Simulated scan of single mutants.
Amino acid sequence: MSAPVLAEDGTEVQPPRPRWGIGSRSVVIATGLWITFLAAHLLLAGRWWVWLIVETMPPITLVVVPLTLLVCARFARPVRRRAGAALVAALLAGAPFAGLAPAAAFGDNGSGPRTGTLKVFSWNTDYWHMTDDVTAFYAYLRAQHADVYLLQEYLHWDDGPVRIDDLTRLRAAFPGYRIAVAGELVTMSRIPLVGQRLLPASDTDWRGSRVLRTDVRYGSTVMSLYNVHLAVPVNLDLSPLTKKFYRYTHDEYRRRQTELTALRADLARNPLPRLVAGDRSLSLSIGAFSLAAVSGMLVIFLPDGAVVRELLMAGVLVRVLPVTAAATAAIASRALCLGTEILLTAVLLGNAAVVRKRRAPANQGA
């Protein structure tokens, strides 16, 4: 233990506290902003229609951001422990909502279903075989060799839903399967179907309910399978600069809440083993924003002027999105980057001003 430092009058001189540098301040500010966002996300997700737009971010963001900040916090010595503890708490709070399923990824390393297991195949067919070769479409379905098929979008589209009747071909392609059809939902099972019901619909559209429940008997067990296709929360074909975009988001939020409320209520009072599968209508949004993030990283070293970055990003996105939506995503990316740059510059300038103010008395004394 080192001896205390004494002043000329004999009083003990306290060692100066280490000052926070720009890096430490940046870590603290970024951690505070992230925790604030995470708290808002946990409170507002599924409860406020505007937050549907925020929910289109890739779920893995809830893990990547705190992990990145944890790496940065290692170099911010004065706040390393406190910032690290806060970020670990944020990581643990956000991980369950990040879409990670380690048990599903590593729980079964076998080459296929074990004896006595039930194989269920769920697929949004993207308007059945409207744009696909019919023979290849049915060959792909048969190749799954599933005990139960949960299929969505049993329809075509031409400026609106178009009814189709493909039951004859389905029965020929899957002899011995029981088939339940409700609007755009098809459930096929080669084990006995002992019951089916539609959950309450959110509107009076002919497509009807977005949830088809079928009860099947597997050995001595009766279980419930829920074939789900929820309403699309955000229409990327619409520009966020128009009222129609927000009106659509508000209306779809109401529809989704009706559908989810009915699903949760049925699950709560159903004593049977249950499986929920289908399309939650989030994959396109998440995929598009993930692709936007990747393309943004790829063009980070390109010249910032002459809209080179935006053109390249839009060129990548247009392969999975309409032109309008791709252009909107590129413009939104520019606005987000600009806002981040302005915020970061303001933080750094403010920090520099504080440092100069603290150093000024010392310089005057010298």
Rank of each mutant, 00 (worst) to 15 (best):
G183P: 04
S239N: 06
K244F: 06
D205R: 12
T187V: 05
L155N: 08
Y246S: 02
T135F: 04
A143F: 11
F137G: 04
R178V: 07
P161H: 09
I164C: 03
K244R: 15
L193F: 01
R247E: 11
R171A: 12
L150Q: 04
K243N: 14
D159K: 15
L236A: 09
D166M: 07
S189W: 04
E184M: 10
L236E: 06
Y248S: 07
S224R: 03
T214R: 01
D165P: 12
H229K: 15
A173K: 03
L141E: 01
T204A: 15
E252M: 14
D165S: 08
G219K: 14
P233H: 12
Y177S: 06
G219H: 10
L236R: 12
R178F: 08
D159Q: 13
E153P: 11
W157A: 12
P175R: 11
G176P: 08
L236N: 03
Y253G: 05
G219P: 02
T242P: 01
R171Q: 14
P192K: 06
A136Q: 11
V216R: 13
D205P: 03
R207D: 07
D159F: 07
A143Y: 13
V148N: 00
D165M: 11
R178L: 14
R163K: 14
R190Q: 10
M223A: 05
K243H: 09
Y246F: 09
R254C: 07
L151I: 06
E252I: 04
L198R: 08
P175T: 05
N235Q: 09
V186R: 08
I164T: 10
D159M: 09
D132W: 14
I191A: 09
D165Y: 12
Y246M: 06
H156G: 02
T135I: 06
M188D: 06
N227T: 10
S189P: 00
V186G: 02
R210F: 08
M188I: 10
L151V: 13
A231P: 05
D158P: 06
L170D: 08
D132S: 05
P175L: 07
I191T: 09
H250P: 03
V181T: 03
P200R: 15
D165H: 14
E184K: 06
D251T: 13
I179P: 01
D203M: 08
V148G: 01
D158G: 10
L225V: 11
Y149G: 04
D132T: 00
G176H: 05
S220W: 04
T135P: 07
V228T: 11
Q196A: 07
L212F: 00
T242L: 08
A180D: 00
D166W: 00
T242R: 12
R163P: 05
V228A: 05
T221M: 00
E153V: 02
Y140M: 13
S224Q: 02
R210S: 07
A146M: 13
E184F: 09
D158K: 10
P192S: 15
L193H: 07
Y149K: 07
L198Q: 10
Q152C: 01
T135E: 15
L225N: 02
E184I: 11
T221P: 02
T168K: 09
L238S: 08
R163W: 12
W157R: 13
P200S: 05
P200V: 10
P175F: 11
W206D: 14
K244I: 09
R213L: 07
G195K: 02
L151Q: 03
N235C: 08
A146P: 14
L167V: 11
P200F: 14
V194K: 14
E153Q: 10
Y226K: 05
D205A: 15
G160Y: 13
L151C: 05
G208P: 06
